[in-house]
């Protein structure tokens, strides 16, 4: 069984990103190739903000996602429209909007909803965390 995760809950107003991370760890523990990809939509895209600095005595959720993605080769997609409107900008979008900075954290990538549709059609099951 291969899963795609759709995460829509804000990392600050919900535990969606936290719970999904725990789900991924459990799934990988059972089967190393069980996660096809993770798509962040709505306020969940805020997970990809590289300049957010959580207090040092709390979990750094963005870093936790980066580590699990890097260690297990899991693609982390942020909806580009949802991300850009919330200030999560990669270098390409930064140039397009003539900005001086970009804020997208490493290991995350901006993709359109078409990528989510593709994941839906190539994965056994898609699970939403909200």
């Amino acid at each position: 069984m291969q899963y795609t995760l759709l995460i829509t809950g804000s990392p600050y107003h919900s535990k969606a990103c936290h719970t999904a991370l725990r789900f991924i760890r459990a799934a990988l523990n059972k089967s190393p190739d069980s996660i096809k990809g993770v798509f962040f939509y709505e306020d969940a895209v805020l997970i990809g903000n590289q300049v957010a600095q959580p207090p040092r005595d709390e979990i750094n959720l963005t870093r936790a996602w980066q580590e699990i993605a890097e260690q297990n080769n899991i693609p982390l997609y942020l909806c580009i429209a949802a991300a850009v409107r919330r200030g999560i900008i990669n270098e390409g979008e930064s140039r397009r909007y003539e900005l001086e900075q970009h804020t997208l954290a490493e290991h995350f990538q901006l993709e359109g909803l078409g990528t989510l549709v593709d994941l839906m059609n190539t994965t056994n099951k898609i699970i939403q965390f909200r």
Binding site: T8, Y41, E42, D43, A81, A82, L113, G114
Partner: peptide, 12 residues
């Protein structure tokens, strides 16, 4: 934005 982004996903 939830309603709007849900509708956006439906349209896509």
């Amino acid at each position: 934005l939830a309603c709007k982004e849900g509708l956006d996903l439906a349209l896509v």
